[in-house]
Design a protein around this nucleic acid. Structure first.
Lengths: 360, 360
DNA sequence: TTACTTTACACAATCGATTGTGTCGATCAA
DNA sequence: TTGATCGACACAATCGATTGTGTAAAGTAA
């Protein structure tokens, strides 16, 4: 900047203001400064700017980890949206550890980020470290794994709605005895998915039978065991709604192992739209979690908060509508079923995934 | 800091030096400063520090995107390793666009990152923007998709070795006519995998038959077509090495569609260890790309560069050994084959993936 | 012409931490 | 006793950009 000022014989003030389009700089001077800046390929030092202004163009993200399908996709959405708004993102992993989560927040604070996006670690039961952010006026938005309550800003998937539409879909396909492979109920997402399942049963006038609900940690092996038990019962289920795709996968495998057919004997629906759900035989009906939309929505909300700049802002909770992806594991209408993996939705997903990992 | 100085009746110099363990500060004073810093929960302003020192504790990452299995895992490895060394990472996506890649580098420069990790966009053919980094003395390490040559620092998977061990494995399983579903040859990774395939054939004294190599964009649909053509030839192959898992998946589906058995009639091996490879029936033999190790190795190299601090540093290329994961799509030994998805390696992977996406 | 705005830019302080140089008292060898 | 050395800390400049305030010159109204 000093170089530019010298060359034009003006002060650095003028340069700075010309570059930021300040009203007190004449159009002629602005042109000259801009041109010279291009010529020298001037890159402002963001640190200096942030230091002086007290606000950087960085958003902090704290996620439990960056693996699997969900979080990378959300981060992808966040980065894209942030980038469009002129922000960059700095990523921290809590590794499901509260202490690490706390450290990450401190780091982000001292990096002077403009705002923070958080998805809670599994071990977070105490939320005081977020109060610290609040007291310093740091904009904060939770996503997916949130602090419950209506005094926080948060973006989540409507898990209850997801459980509801999945179950209703199974009912529409003729299932009358639908089991539920549930996840850990202390997590809001699994609790809500179960509730949606119950809602659909009630709406259809089907009995709520606790013996049809099996609680698991939503891993394949436990789902296999769960399915074995369910099939061994006096009146086995004719449909299964699993609160996660690994649960659906395990169920599918056990049903096959016992020589039964999916979906004719047992229809199956999962949750999360894991990549593998379009690859199994049959492909698995599931719920898309709108990962990218979640990231984008979270950024939008955060940017609003940042722009509010400390002024009173009514906290908002955004719930995204889940999308039911109907695939072959649940469709008992033969004309659709026979399309197998060629199902449009499945195809689209496979292509997208292929594109994504093509050059890796 | 000013507060601490005032409270202790010393200068900010003393505080700063006590905190950074400078030799000219007495041990008694250091203790006092440290204690007071704890008490007030003092967080240094990293911006100010970075501005003054000209070096931040940030590493920049430029990847084509954050999706699929590969890049998120590498980023995971990078973040973990960086975090351990006291660095944070700022992530940029090029979206496979050179222009965006260039912009990202500028942004990282102006953010005063300590170093940059890059995996090239697919459209990058001109490397001048990296010269700019070099001229400013910015430490730079490529990973996976690299600028070829021995004057760059880079970490890659040894793709040729991967192609070699896969193919040799198929040969060991009794395959004598092994086809290759290849990827775009302008990409070093696919070129090298093909070369490894040829190496193994030559070593085993098997003929190199161009009619057995089909070039695709490594997407499922093209692999299906490729496999159909291969099976329609006068002497169909008894083994297939696909340079990517989506290729292997397509091949598997087509073989099944024609009523042939895998691996008895056609053994199949893929590449990349996509999540779905343990879920298909049979599970697919593939190559693990050591994603996390790649990230860690890249960070190690970058930190060395940063510590060299401009002093001459002999550029280094690190090639990671690929790991062959033998699964049921290629094993013609029945005792192993019958273990199906219960194969130890497969199980481990599924569990890991389940854990990773469990709460998403 | 006087008084008052506007326009267009410069001065200098500031953000928070770092660091080369200076200083003062104490210790030490000769 | 004297000059030298060393330990422990303060002063003040510095990183690069931003911004409240000040002020000439030019324009405008009466």
């Amino acid at each position: 900047m000093a170089d530019l000022a010298r060359e034009l014989g003006v002060s650095m003030t003028t340069i700075s203001r010309a570059l930021s389009d300040h009203y007190s700089i004449g159009p002629a001077m602005k042109q000259k400064v801009l041109k010279l800046a291009k010529k020298y390929n001037y890159q402002p030092n963001r640190l200096a700017s942030a230091l002086r202004k007290g606000k950087s163009q960085l958003l902090g993200i704290v996620v439990p980890y960056i693996e699997g399908r969900f979080f990378p996709s959300v981060v992808h959405g966040i980065e894209s949206a942030a980038s469009k708004a002129g922000y960059n993102v700095i990523i921290c992993q809590s590794n499901e550890d509260v202490a690490q989560e706390r450290r990450n927040l401190d780091i982000l604070l001292s990096a002077q980020v403009a705002g923070v996006l958080v998805s809670l670690s599994r071990t977070t039961r105490d939320f005081r470290h977020f109060e610290k952010l609040r007291s310093r006026g740091m904009p904060l938005v939770f996503f997916d794994r949130i602090v419950e309550g209506d005094n926080v800003n948060a973006v989540v998937l409507d898990d209850q709605e997801g459980g509801y539409v999945s179950t209703r879909h199974l009912i529409e396909q003729g299932c009358r005895r639908i089991a539920h492979i549930a996840g850990p109920q202390h997590l809001n997402i699994y609790k809500n998915r179960r509730q949606g399942y119950l809602d659909a049963l009630r709406e259809a006038g089907l009995p709520e039978d606790e013996s049809l609900i099996v609680y698991t940690d939503m891993i394949q092996s436990q789902a296999i065991d769960a399915m074995r038990d369910l099939l061994a019962s006096p009146i086995p289920p004719d449909g299964v709604f699993a609160a996660g795709d690994y649960g659906a996968l395990g169920a599918l495998q056990e049903v096959h192992r016992q020589g039964l057919r999916v979906p004719q004997d047992v229809a199956i629906a999962g949750f999360s739209n894991e990549t593998f759900t379009v690859v199994t035989e049959p492909s698995i009906t599931t719920i898309d979690q709108r990962c990218e939309e979640m990231g984008q929505a979270a950024v939008r909300l955060l940017l609003e908060l940042i722009e509010a700049d400390g002024r009173p802002f009514a906290p908002r909770q955004v719930a995204l509508r889940p999308e039911l992806l109907v695939r072959n594991s649940s469709v008992r209408n033969s004309s659709v079923r026979n399309s197998l993996v060629r199902h449009p939705e499945g195809e689209r997903l496979v292509e997208a995934a292929a594109k994504a990992s093509k050059l890796a």
